[in-house]
């Protein structure tokens, strides 16, 4: 067991611990903060795997964007400081069963895959390569999904503006 493996287990324990706390805490703001820590843990896992670009994007999108949005919506809802009521017994049993089933299913899939150790040099992805691949029209290019997502985002943005827009009513 070398230092790299030890660091992996520390990060994994951090992610899982924060994730469990996020679903078990009864204060909604704390739950958002634990989710944040869990997502930061995943970003650090990417850093550990030396895919820095994905790690940075993970932080920008999930931590800097989505969690901040979640926190804002918690701020704007009422009674966010109170403790939530305890979940009903029946519900917790069924959710525990769902978790167990999901775990068993994923574990089975991963076990069947049987990871092989690949003796290869660590790959380094240049940011310019990512950009070229994203906009290339050749066989393995991603220009079509890229454009589709762009259109989707544009539509979402226009929708937001329409919702937020003040319509001037003529009083007279």
């Amino acid at each position: 067991m070398n230092a790299s493996v030890i660091i992996f287990y520390i990060i994994a324990a951090f992610i899982l611990g924060a994730g469990i706390l996020a679903v078990t805490t009864r204060k909604i703001f704390r739950s958002a903060i634990w989710l944040l820590f869990s997502l930061i843990g995943i970003a650090s896992l990417y850093f550990w795997m030396q895919v820095e670009f994905v790690a940075a994007v993970q932080i920008v999108v999930y931590v800097g964007g989505i969690v901040v949005l979640i926190i804002f919506s918690i701020f704007l809802t009422q009674k966010s400081g109170d403790e939530m009521p305890k979940p009903l017994k029946n519900r917790s049993i069924f959710s525990a069963l769902a978790v167990l089933f999901g775990f068993a299913f994923t574990f089975n899939l991963i076990k069947q895959y049987g990871f092989k150790q690949i003796e290869s040099t660590p790959f380094e992805v240049k940011v310019s390569d990512i950009g070229n691949q994203m906009l290339s029209t050749t066989e393995h290019g991603f220009v079509l999904p890229f454009e589709v997502v762009s259109i989707l985002l544009l539509a979402a943005m226009i929708g937001c503006i329409v919702i937020a827009m003040k319509v001037k009513h003529n009083e007279q």
Binding site: E52, A56, I71, V127
Partner: peptide, 27 residues
Amino acid sequence: INIGVLYLSAVSSLSVIGVLMAGWASN
């Protein structure tokens, strides 16, 4: 790090979390 500038803008977006946390937790 080979994505230095992206790293800077990613991590600096985290600093807002501390401010939000402080403001909310103070009650």
